[in-house]
């Protein structure tokens, strides 16, 4: 067991190193930040550019810059933004909770929709309701998400004026972004819930519970749902990583002050430290979640350890 843990851990560290190396290298191909910073200036000489590169630390060799970054990773010091000199850690500290909260709310929305729908589909297996639920949940998956977002804004913020169109400011502001992202997951989650419920419902103790004359809702939501909770939670947890990767577009439409907005601005501005830090933090979270899931599986199912 210890061997398995160590192996998985070493693999994760290897992935972290390769990912950060690729990211650091790729970012430096996006172009020269010094040119970017001087594009509004009247006339710029090569000397000016050299000076600015020096001030930004870009005159050092790539590996030196990379190791500087790795070192910073341990002390949570990611340097300063090229655009304005704000500490990257300050920017991250503001943006990370915003993104995580949005991802989390999206997951909640999706679960809140898919559990009743999934259960209904399972109990009416093969009937019209089952078909309809699956098709409807696929409709949600088929929307271009920014278009859906714009339509929601048009309806709920401009026409009905029920919800704020953008920004992060209290409970109402979470509804539209979370629904936009949550709907995408719903198709998958309805299917997961349906499958899990179908397996559970055929089990002996459900028959017993029904035989005892318990109401159908008690049987479904108390007995059956509780028993398939663990695999479902694992699946939902795994989706967290995927959510984080796809959040940029939705953040942009809703002007959400999260990591996606931060990174999107940073690419345009060639703000290496910010972009590098955001991608690295997101990657670390994805790697971390995958590692946890692997370990959890390994603990539960010994066969995986040997694979």
């Amino acid at each position: 067991m210890a061997g398995f843990l160590i192996k998985r851990f070493l693999q994760a560290i290897f992935v972290v190193i390769v990912v950060t190396l690729i990211v650091a290298f790729a970012i430096r191909l996006t172009g020269d930040p010094a040119l970017m910073l001087t594009q509004g200036a009247g006339s710029v000489t090569e000397d000016d550019l050299v000076r600015i590169r020096e001030a930004l630390g870009l005159n050092q060799p790539f590996l030196a810059q990379y190791f500087g970054f790795l070192k910073g990773l341990f002390t949570l010091d990611f340097g300063r933004s090229f655009l304005g000199g704000t500490k990257v850690s300050t920017l991250l500290a503001a943006a990370l909770p915003a993104t995580l909260l949005l991802a989390f709310s999206s997951l909640i929305v999706s679960i809140a929709i898919s559990i009743p729908l999934g259960i209904k589909a399972a109990t009416s297996r093969g009937k019209w309701a089952d078909q309809l639920i699956r098709i409807l949940s696929l409709v949600g998956l088929s929307f271009p998400n920014f278009w859906l977002a714009l339509m929601l804004v048009l309806l709920f913020a401009i026409t009905l004026k029920w919800l704020p169109p953008s920004g992060m400011s209290g409970f109402e502001s979470f509804i539209m972004p979370a629904v936009t992202m949550g709907i995408i997951l719903t198709a998958t989650n309805v299917r997961l819930v349906r499958t899990a419920m179908l397996e559970t419902l055929s089990a002996q103790y459900i028959m017993v519970a029904r035989a005892k004359g318990l109401s159908e809702n008690v049987v479904l939501y108390k007995h059956a749902l509780r028993n398939c909770a663990i695999p479902l939670i694992t699946y939902f947890g795994l989706q967290f990583g995927g959510l984080l990767g796809g959040i940029v577009v939705v953040e942009r439409v809703f002007n959400w002050p999260g990591l996606g907005t931060l990174a999107f601005d940073a690419v345009g501005a060639r703000d290496y430290p910010v972009l590098q830090a955001v991608i690295t933090v997101l990657s670390l979270m994805i790697i971390g979640v995958n590692l946890l899931v692997d370990i959890a599986y390994g603990l539960v199912d010994p066969r995986i350890r040997t694979e």
Binding site: L150, V153, L154, A157, I158, K161, P164, P165, S166, G167, R252, V253, F254, N255, T261, D265
Partner: peptide, 18 residues
């Protein structure tokens, strides 16, 4: 001042009176 990059969003905020 609020920083809003997306034009459609800025106009939506204007229409919403925010």
């Amino acid at each position: 001042y609020r920083f809003i990059a997306e034009p459609a969003t800025a106009v939506a905020e204007l229409q919403a009176g925010r």
